[in-house]
Amino acid sequence: MLLTNSQKAELLKLAKASIQEGLKSGRPLQIDLQQYDPAITLKRASFVTLERGGQLRGCIGMLEAVRPLVEDIAENAFAAAFRDPRFPPLSETEYADLDVHISILSPAEAIDFVSEPDLIAQLQPGVDGLILREGYRRGTFLPSVWEQLPDPVQFLRHLKQKAGLPADYWSETLKIFRYRTEMFS
């Protein structure tokens, strides 16, 4: 489901309002579903990515749709600003030059493959977001990560490392899922 420009603008405004609420109260914005276009209250998974000066400042999201999209974005925007363990909580002074990017995820689909070369041949750089699962380990890269890692071999190696596995790890039990995103800022 593609969003209209006005729906995208409303979701960006919502993400920023949730961050502002976090700066004031320490909590995400509380959502009244009745105030929003029904199309953006459907259960959808999202990621909110924050950048300052072109550098990552926080990124939090959900891989599966578990709550209405407007709630997911409000919670993820707050979490990206204040709960991403890679960064200290966002300060008031950082807010002014914060860039907010939203990615709405399609449902993930398993990729069937018989070997690592087979998997790599099926990847669509710049299009696929990937989820890697091996036992209790899990990692994901949004499609936007292809901008930094355009080579499918390197993309997969770095994803394995993100999941806590060696870059050259391979197993018959490894599971890979793909999803697409609608990204806007």
Rank of each mutant, 00 (worst) to 15 (best):
M1R: 13
L29E: 03
R52W: 04
P125E: 09
P28F: 04
R52G: 12
Q34N: 13
R57P: 08
I104H: 02
P38Q: 02
K162G: 00
T181Y: 00
R86E: 04
S18M: 09
G61M: 05
K43I: 05
T4E: 12
A81G: 15
R67M: 13
K13Y: 10
N5E: 13
L174N: 11
I176Y: 09
P28W: 04
L130K: 11
S171W: 08
E75S: 07
Q122T: 03
L50C: 09
D128W: 06
M62L: 14
F82T: 03
V153K: 14
L174M: 15
L165T: 11
Q124A: 11
S106C: 02
Q122N: 02
H158S: 12
S115Q: 11
L142F: 03
V127N: 01
S6V: 11
A9M: 06
Q55I: 01
R57C: 00
A45M: 11
L69W: 04
L69Y: 04
V153S: 09
T181R: 00
E10C: 13
R86T: 06
S171C: 07
D32W: 00
A80C: 06
F184A: 00
R157D: 15
T41K: 02
K43E: 13
Y36C: 05
R27W: 00
A79R: 08
I73H: 02
H101R: 15
R178E: 03
S185Q: 14
D112F: 08
L98V: 03
E172Q: 15
Q30M: 11
R86N: 05
A163F: 08
P143M: 01
L165A: 10
L149I: 03
G61E: 07
V153W: 09
P107W: 10
M62F: 14
K162S: 03
L2R: 14
P143N: 01
K16D: 09
Q122Y: 01
K160R: 14
K162Q: 03
T173N: 13
Y179V: 05
G61A: 07
T173M: 01
W170N: 11
H158K: 12
I60K: 00
S185T: 12
Y95N: 07
A121L: 09
D97M: 08
A79L: 12
R157Y: 12
R57H: 07
L56H: 06
K43T: 10
L33T: 08
E64P: 06
I104M: 01
L42G: 10
L142A: 04
N76V: 03
S171Y: 10
E10S: 14
I120M: 09
G53N: 14
R52M: 14
I60N: 01
V145M: 09
I111N: 03
A39M: 11
T4H: 08
S6M: 07
V66K: 15
E94A: 06
E147V: 11
L29F: 03
R178N: 04
D99W: 01
V70S: 05
W146K: 09
Y36H: 12
T140P: 02
A110F: 07
F87K: 01
Q124F: 00
L174Y: 12
L69R: 04
H101M: 08
T41C: 15
